[in-house]
């Protein structure tokens, strides 16, 4: 990523359009950022801090838990209060073909002609943590467009869904009474990142037992740090007000001075760290002429002259020796 000095005019007009609330400009900018286009950094840079950051609420949970429906219904509640809403819905990229079917809009049809709701579907494109790599950046673009609450829906394939905790302010974990959900949630470490737990499909058999099991698993946590459990039936629009209340309370808790400062600091640090890490790695590898070196070593492995592990170790050693260290203290 280099600064977008090549196309300052285009960047300026995109940025201006987004701040004006133009959905087409926003959508274009999202594509550029998602594709790591040369202009991406300049666009993000020129929009940074221009509008207040919308609270970001992440929704995660096992497949079939009702994430999309809950997001759609919560968006409806926010719209009824006049709140402008951004939605980012992430679906997995096929590891075999690189393609993806992004189907979350199917369950958000009622917002499909509301220009105060901006829904963007993203594919993970190889990212493993349940979100797409640029989710955070797309949320920033939504802020600039005027999103007042941004809802982020993870893949929910039952694998590790931990990125969502870093990318959002509040993490909602959605579970259902269906057997196996609790186990899956524990296995995926979801309970640790849950700031609000939604027990969806609470009209199904087993809801009480599931709630009891959840409470038991939270019992070891100190009073006051146990996430609230909200029962919902999203398809029947039940429990949405309670969810709204729980999210509001969490937001208020975050706003306390003893929390807001350190938390914000940690988020900013994380943001800089990931930008640096990515930029550094790219720049570094490019300067090393990595692709060419890789080609040569690949030939060696194929010819049986070395193993992939040995080749990798040798490369790392060579590159760290050759690289010009600007700071003797390392990382």
């Amino acid at each position: 990523m280099s600064a977008g000095a090549e196309a300052p005019a285009a960047v300026a007009s995109l940025a201006e359009g987004i701040l004006r609330g133009d959905p087409r400009m926003l959508a274009r900018a999202m594509t550029l950022v998602e594709n790591a286009a040369p202009e991406a950094e300049a666009i993000l840079e020129s929009l940074y801090g221009k509008k207040p950051a919308a609270p970001r609420v992440g929704f995660t949970g096992p497949p079939g838990a009702g994430k999309s429906t809950l997001v759609a219904e919560y968006a409806r509640l926010l719209r009824a209060e006049g709140v402008q809403v951004g939605v980012i819905a992430v679906d997995p990229t096929s590891p075999f073909t690189g393609g993806a079917i992004l189907g979350d809009r199917v369950r958000m049809n009622e917002h499909a002609t509301d220009d105060k709701v901006f829904i963007r579907s993203m594919a993970t494109r190889g990212s493993l943590g349940g979100l797409a790599a640029r989710t955070g950046e797309l949320c920033e673009l939504l802020d600039a467009w005027g999103s007042e609450v941004t809802l982020v829906e993870t893949v929910g394939v039952g694998q590790s869904e931990l990125d969502v905790a870093e990318a959002t302010d509040t993490t909602v974990v959605i579970l259902t009474p269906e057997s196996g959900d609790a186990i899956q949630a524990l296995k995926a470490g979801l309970m640790e990142i849950a700031e609000v737990i939604v027990l969806n499909k609470a009209d199904h058999v087993g809801a009480d037992a599931m709630e009891a099991a959840l409470r038991a698993s939270l019992a070891f946590r100190p009073e006051g740090s146990r996430p609230p459990i909200v029962r919902t039936v999203a398809t029947a629009r039940q429990g949405l007000d309670e969810l709204h209340q729980a999210l509001r309370e969490h937001r208020e808790a975050l706003a306390k001075p003893e929390i807001v400062g350190p938390r914000r600091r940690e988020k900013v640090r994380a943001r800089i760290r990931s930008a640096v890490r990515e930029g550094l790695l790219d720049a570094w590898l490019r300067r090393q002429g990595f692709e060419d070196v890789l080609d040569g070593v690949t030939d060696d492995v194929i010819a049986g002259r070395t193993s992939p592990y040995r080749a990798a170790r040798a490369l790392i050693e060579r590159m760290t020796r050759d690289g010009k260290r600007t700071n003797g203290n390392g990382n």
Partner: peptide, 19 residues
């Protein structure tokens, strides 16, 4: 299309031109 490497946004049924 997915198998051809495209990203397909599928909206489902009964879409109006506005949607």
């Amino acid at each position: 299309m997915r198998d051809a490497g495209f990203e397909v946004i599928y909206t489902g049924l009964h879409q109006t031109p506005e949607m």
